[in-house]
């Protein structure tokens, strides 16, 4: 039953841009943010809230821009290398950060990401400062494409990745390692007494979450064609947490549901009002107060984890 629902949802997503071409960009961006929000949701399972994950989103997009500048011009290679770069950054940051909990974890992530943001904005000669860097149209499997074709290809690749990566993350969360991650939220003392190294469990999760944010950032970079420091600003990190919580952290689909909901609502809302943040802020507050399991909690029968 759930497979059918999921399959039809993906199918609908796949044909939507055929019916309404303007949706293609919106949906690509939604999937990109969905990946990053999924990364945030992975950490939220352990009770850790990061207000800094936009750093990995931005780092990967900058990575693409730098690699393209260095002459690498293949979509697959650029995606892989930039996600690896984000994962590596995640491993380095994670080594220091997974020792901390609660508000301290949140604030340290914020601090790291703001250092990153400020460097991106200020090192004009390297990063182009607040103008950012362009992300050129790459070749896909050796085929050089025009921009409109590339954007279509990017959308379908993102959709396919959403399925593949989503399934992989689902497996991870169901594995012993994923269960140990959720157990960090419940009882660290018991974990230690089971002989499970909590820091290693968290480090794996942190690297996974950084890689997911990186994948989202790379896709967003390609879709937008530019990366700017604001990708890494703290409000962007806040938005990722917001998407994860709106969608619900109980399962992998939650992050994507949240992102799609928000991006679609946004593209509708901007035609009527410019009070977009007002709507989002209010929605967030209402969802937290009345739907603690997020939108995904409405669909899933199994008890989903909430904050």
């Amino acid at each position: 039953m759930r497979t059918i629902v999921a399959a039809s949802a993906v199918l609908i997503l796949a044909v939507l841009p055929v019916a309404a071409p303007w949706l293609q960009f919106v949906l690509t961006l939604a999937i990109a943010k969905g990946f990053a929000a999924l990364g945030v949701a992975v950490l939220l399972r352990a009770g850790l809230i990061s207000i800094g994950h936009a750093m990995f989103f931005a780092a990967s997009a900058y990575g693409v821009a730098f690699l393209a500048r260095a002459g690498i011009n293949d979509l697959g290679l650029l995606l892989i290398l930039s996600v690896l770069a984000a994962a590596l950054l995640g491993a380095i940051a994670g080594l220091f950060l997974v020792r901390y909990r609660a508000i301290f974890f949140a604030m340290l992530n914020l601090a790291v990401s703001m250092v990153f943001y400020a460097l991106c904005a200020k090192l004009y000669s390297v990063t182009g400062g607040t103008d950012g860097m362009t992300v050129p149209v790459p070749a896909v499997f050796g085929v050089v494409l025009g921009e409109p074709t590339f954007k279509s290809v990017l959308f379908y690749i993102s959709l396919a990745l959403m399925l593949l990566v989503g399934l992989a993350i689902q497996r991870y969360l169901n594995s012993p390692l994923g269960h140990a991650l959720a157990a960090v939220h419940s009882n660290e003392i018991r974990l230690e007494y089971l002989g499970i190294p909590v820091w290693a469990v968290l480090l794996v999760a942190y690297v996974v979450s950084a890689a997911l944010a990186g994948l989202g950032g790379a896709i967003a970079g390609f879709a937008i064609g530019r990366v700017v420091p604001d990708f890494a600003f703290w409000t962007a990190s806040g938005h990722l947490v917001l998407i994860a919580v709106l969608g619900g952290i109980g399962g992998v689909p939650g992050a994507f549901i949240g992102a799609l909901f928000l991006e679609l609502l946004h593209s509708v809302a901007v035609t009527v009002t410019d009070a977009w943040n007002l709507i989002v802020g209010l929605t967030l507050i209402v969802v937290i107060m009345f739907l603690p399991q997020g939108f995904y909690g409405l669909f899933s029968r199994k008890e989903a984890s909430s904050l």
Binding site: P176, L177, H179
Partner: peptide, 23 residues
């Protein structure tokens, strides 16, 4: 692990002994 089911508490303990690093 109070948020988890009884059986999951047990299976995680069993996995801690062998097979934790299987993702």
């Amino acid at each position: 692990f109070s948020a988890q089911r009884v059986i999951d508490n047990m299976m995680l303990a069993l996995a801690a002994k062998d097979g934790l690093w299987n993702a």
